[in-house]
Design a protein around this nucleic acid. Structure first.
Length: 648
RNA sequence: GCCGCACUAGCUCAGCUGGUAGAGCAUCGCAUUCGUAAUGCGGAGGUCAGGGGUUCGAAUCCCUUGUGCGGCACCA
């Protein structure tokens, strides 16, 4: 066989017979490397030690010291070991797929009985036993027919279906972890003995549809996390505990911001503290919109189905709308209405009043639109995913030529607001045409290219989300991440050539003829509910001073200070600071603890000394030090801090 | 919506295999005037999510409805 040349990371090259495996290369270099190696990187591809190398290539041998390959292999092999453990414990369980995900892996099984928490413990135990067997990992390439026949004989229908879905010319790779066999593209470790038996944990079991299709079988998915060593695992589990403390549902209760109850599932009862955040944010957004050239409107909640039929929403989203039927006792004819699930059709109605000139475009029409959607019960999540919410919604009516400049303008607008609100980083996703959609393909071509060009012109990278666009047009999504790493879409920008057509929106062009405007649907926060949920989690409840619902508590140390405390509170309130007095007959320790737990950013403690000096003792949240400040000084300072970022 | 799990005082939670409900914190009362993360004592507070069943007897077992939680699917 011809020789090939392999180039190592240090630049050195060696000649080997073609078809040599990385394992053999490692053995050629040293015995210890042969033992320590876990995989190779060949021309940038993660490569199994057993795979033959057929041509000249760059090669690096990986060990457990190499982060990315090590973690990928640990998690991938653990997925296989878990599936083997499950089938050893319950031989009738059918296996499906088990990919690596962030921090771990999952594997989907078909089993009649549900897996219990006790089962997870038994599986973990069996996994450790398997790891301790130090079984070799072996791989072979199989012919397709042989693989199908094998899985038919083994009564593994999901594997048969997987293979049938793989293009015929693609080789099928089998892996054995000891006696246990799985179809897998690899790569894998040399032996299960290379797995850390004390650095993984099975986390949960959950339902998951086969191939993500809600019409198909519901499988049982077991999630696991795996790391290189026990300390990393412990650090991960600690991080999860810390993240749970930031959960907006928990902080919402602890800070007395809002509650929800079963008589109104998916809808928020805002308490005074939470509503203060909401209105402060809304006031800020209203000022931003005025600066950004928007006009603000307000439209009806209960709207006849005829409008939703005209817009096309009735056909597609009827099941997700709150239907309001007017009783025949109240009306001559029974009318079917829906609570508005979005604002766009109503905004077009405003646009359609009177003739619009091209001189009025772009017309940016904003509404803090209160919407209701009957979201599936399983989708509800705290105040992040609700059935009643308010969007910072706007529709920009413009010409095709204005799409690019309006898009760029909007992205800049959004980025500045996110920065003000403490989110300098966000993800951008571009979603193109979905399978079911309105409008002709050439219109979609136009919309997609206009939006993409504008995004690039604005200087933002985006990831493509194929087929995820709205039914009327492509969209950009601006995504923020919550405390436990879940992504939430907040801002959006959607190009729409369809709705103006359906609702017959027109303007008079410079040529004196009627033309269709384009609509850009856009939101920055998305919904106030979701955005506030993310704000709470991002700051772990310790909101920036200007957004904090309770900014200052002035606490007396002795009752002789009460009068002066009241005077300080009044002065702060007059200066626009949300201040309150705590005159209760309690120790200062007690008050400091309580208000600290309540995430009040500033506590001013006042005892006999402060009364005498007309000063205050200042304690900032998260800081155990205290400072002394004069009366006028602290009022001026806190008033300045209380100003929203756009008014500083 | 689907799969699984859960629901006990305002909150966090205990209550073994069925024998008739408990703690801490919060609340209320009394005492305490205290220097930066819990002052002491006392009182009150629950149709054990709702409904149905099994049983001499159900917080506990079964069915059902609701809501929540973790995923999946969905997200105009």
């Amino acid at each position: 066989m011809a020789d090939i040349s392999l180039t190592f990371p240090d630049g050195a090259s060696r000649s080997y017979p073609a078809g040599i495996t990385p394992a053999e290369v490692a053995a050629d270099i040293s015995k210890s490397l042969a033992k320590k190696a876990i995989s190779a990187t060949v021309d940038g591809q993660h490569f199994d030690l057993q795979w033959p190398i057929g041509h000249n290539a760059d090669i690096a041998l990986n060990t457990m010291a190499d982060d990315a390959p090590a973690l990928e292999l640990i998690r991938h092999d653990l997925a296989h070991v878990m599936a083997r453990a499950v089938q050893e414990l319950w031989p009738d369980v059918k296996v499906t797929i088990g990919p690596v995900i962030s921090n771990g892996w999952y594997y989907d099984f078909d089993r009649a009985e549900p897996f219990t928490p006790e089962d997870l413990g038994a599986i973990e135990k069996k996994m450790r036993e398997i790891i301790n067997l130090r079984d070799p990992v072996r791989t072979e390439v199989w012919e397709r027919d042989r693989a199908i026949a094998h899985y038919r004989a083994a009564d593994e229908p999901y594997k048969v279906e997987l293979i049938e879905g793989i293009p015929g010319d693609q080789p099928l790779r089998m892996y054995w972890h000891g006696h246990w066999q799985d179809l897998c593209r690899g790569p894998h470790l040399q032996t299960t003995g290379q797995l850390p038996a004390d650095a993984f944990k099975l986390m949960s079991v959950a339902g998951a549809y086969w191939r993500g299709d809600s019409n198909r079988a519901m499988l049982q998915r077991i999630y696991g996390v795996g790391f290189r060593n026990r300390d990393d695992l412990k650090a991960h589990l600690t991080m999860l505990e810390e993240a749970a403390k930031r959960d907006h549902r928990r902080l919402g209760r602890e800070m007395d911001l809002f509650h929800m109850q079963e008589e109104a599932p998916g809808q928020v009862f805002w308490h005074p503290n939470g509503w203060k955040i909401y209105t402060t944010l809304q006031d800020y957004m209203r000022r931003q919109q005025q600066q950004g050239g928007y006009v603000e409107v307000n439209t009806p909640q209960v709207v006849d189905r005829k409008l939703w039929e005209a817009s096309g929403h009735w056909e597609k989203y009827q099941d997700n709308m709150f239907i309001v039927e007017v009783d025949e006792e109240h009306a001559r004819e029974k009318a079917i209405n829906a609570l508005k699930p979005m604002n766009c059709p109503c905004h077009v109605q405003i646009f359609n009043q009177g003739l619009k000139s091209y001189r009025e475009l772009p017309l940016r029409m904003a509404e803090f639109g209160s919407c209701n959607r009957y979201e599936p019960s399983g989708a509800l999540h705290g105040i992040m995913r609700v059935r009643g919410f308010t969007q910072d919604d706007a529709h920009i009516f413009c010409t095709e030529d204005q799409i690019e400049s309006e898009t760029k303008k909007f992205i800049d607008f959004l980025a500045a607001i996110y920065a003000d609100l403490g989110f300098p980083e966000f993800k951008v996703k571009f979603s193109d045409r979905p399978k079911t959609r309105a409008g002709a393909d050439d219109v979609w071509d136009k919309a997609e290219s206009a939006l993409m060009q504008a995004t690039e012109a604005a200087g933002y990278d985006f990831t493509l989300n194929p087929g995820e666009g709205a039914f009327y047009g492509p969209k950009l999504e601006f995504v923020l991440t919550d405390a436990i790493g879940r992504d939430w879409q907040c801002g959006t920008l959607q190009v729409d050539f369809v709705l103006p057509e359906r609702l017959d929106a027109t303007y008079i062009g410079s040529d004196g003829a009627k033309h269709r405007p384009v609509m850009l649907h856009r939101a920055v926060l998305g919904s106030f509910e979701r955005f506030i949920g993310i704000l709470i989690e991002e700051h772990a409840g310790r909101l920036p001073f200007w957004l904090a619902p309770r900014q200052v508590v002035v606490a007396s140390i002795v009752s002789e200070a009460d009068e002066y405390v009241t005077e300080v509170v009044a002065a702060l309130q007059k200066a626009g600071v949300r201040a309150e007095a705590d005159l209760r007959n309690e120790k200062i320790n007690y008050k400091v603890r309580e208000h600290s737990l309540g995430k009040v950013p500033v506590i001013l403690a006042i005892g006999a000394r402060e009364v005498g000096e007309r000063t205050v003792s200042v304690r900032r949240l998260g800081d155990t030090r205290t400072d002394s400040a004069g009366f006028d000084e602290i009022v001026a300072q806190l008033a300045a801090e209380a100003a929203p970022p756009d008014l500083r």
